[in-house]
């Protein structure tokens, strides 16, 4: 409060002070021998104070900007670390555990037994190993969908939606611009955002239909989603503090230099819009 007062006062001073400074400099040049008015030292002091304050405010703004940037870089670094870890675990599961389980299955298959019940047991064990391999593949895919890196965001999303429709019985209408292409880092952010929205739609909103649109104009990409689920009270939500999922959503949107709008009310469904620049360079020049 005190600081704010001081700030107000100083900005006032600043304007008047600056004018007077010019005046005083002008005066002292033109009339070097003129008597000094008693007000002059006061003016000089005010101008000096004004300049110091100007500098102070400028550095405050600079500091603030740097802080925002640092914070964003920190979030970015955290998310990149997280994704790298996920990638490593997914690859290890896939490349190490997979062949091991397959090897074990082959060993079991080459057992020769006379007993019928033993033979049944072997068949059962083989089925279990197959299930384990399948489950392992799913886990690895959840950590990082292989299709995302190999075929890009659109195919990865289509696969994700087909899977969700099958498992959760939700209907997803997906329309998109075929020309959308993003760098691997950015498409991963977008994928995670959509994954998070999908997760919320099913887990919290209990929606039956979700519409997803991914459009592109020359400079921006827009994501628009709408569900017919329960929705939520935004105020109530923010009182409880943002959930981890929501916070992730915002962080990822920030990493895309995007604007995220969430529109929702109880039993009115949820609409989410995300606009972000098409090109990577924009994200750095903006901040």
């Amino acid at each position: 409060m005190l600081l704010y007062d001081k700030y107000l006062r100083s900005t006032k001073n600043l304007y008047s002070g600056n004018d007077d400074l010019f005046a005083s400099v002008y005066c002292s040049n033109v009339l070097p021998s003129a008597e000094k008015s008693p007000i002059e030292p006061l003016l000089i002091a005010a101008s000096v104070l004004g300049i110091i304050l100007l500098y102070f405010i400028a550095s405050l703004i600079r500091h603030q900007r740097r802080n925002v940037k640092l914070n964003q870089e920190k979030i970015e670094a955290e998310i990149i670390t997280l994704e790298n870890e996920r990638r490593r675990i997914a690859a290890d599961l896939h490349d190490e555990v997979g062949p091991m389980l397959s090897g074990i299955k082959l060993m079991i298959s080459s057992l020769e037994v006379e007993n019928d019940s033993d033979r049944d047991r072997i068949i059962k064990v083989k089925e279990y190993i197959d299930d384990s391999i399948k489950r392992m593949r799913e886990i690895s895919n959840n950590l990082l969908p292989a299709v995302l890196e190999k075929r890009g965001i659109l195919e990865a999303l289509q696969q994700l939606f087909v899977e969700y429709q099958k498992i959760h019985g939700i209907m997803i209408q997906f329309s998109y611009d075929e020309n959308i292409s993003l760098s691997s880092q950015r498409q991963l952010h977008l994928y995670r955002i959509i994954q998070e929205i999908l997760h919320n739609t099913i887990k919290h909103a209990h929606a039956k239909i979700l519409r997803v649109e991914l459009l592109m104009n020359n400079k921006n990409i827009s994501l628009y989603t709408e569900d017919n689920g329960g929705g939520f009270d935004k105020l109530d939500r923010s009182n409880k503090g943002k959930g981890l999922g929501m916070r992730n959503l915002h962080s990822r949107a920030e990493l895309l230099s995007g604007n995220l709008y969430i529109e929702s009310a109880p039993s009115k469904g949820t609409r989410i819009t995300l606009n972000f620049p098409n090109h990577e360079q924009d994200s750095h020049t903006k901040s």
């Binding site: 190490e96 062949p99 091991m100 397959s102 090897g103 074990i104 299955k105 082959l106 060993m107 298959s109 080459s110 020769e112």
Partner: peptide
């Protein structure tokens, strides 16, 4: 040829019969 000993082992036993 495989870099996983367990898989090679399984394969070996499957072929042995």
């Amino acid at each position: 040829a495989d870099d996983h000993a367990i898989f090679r082992d399984g394969l070996k036993q499957a072929l042995a019969s």
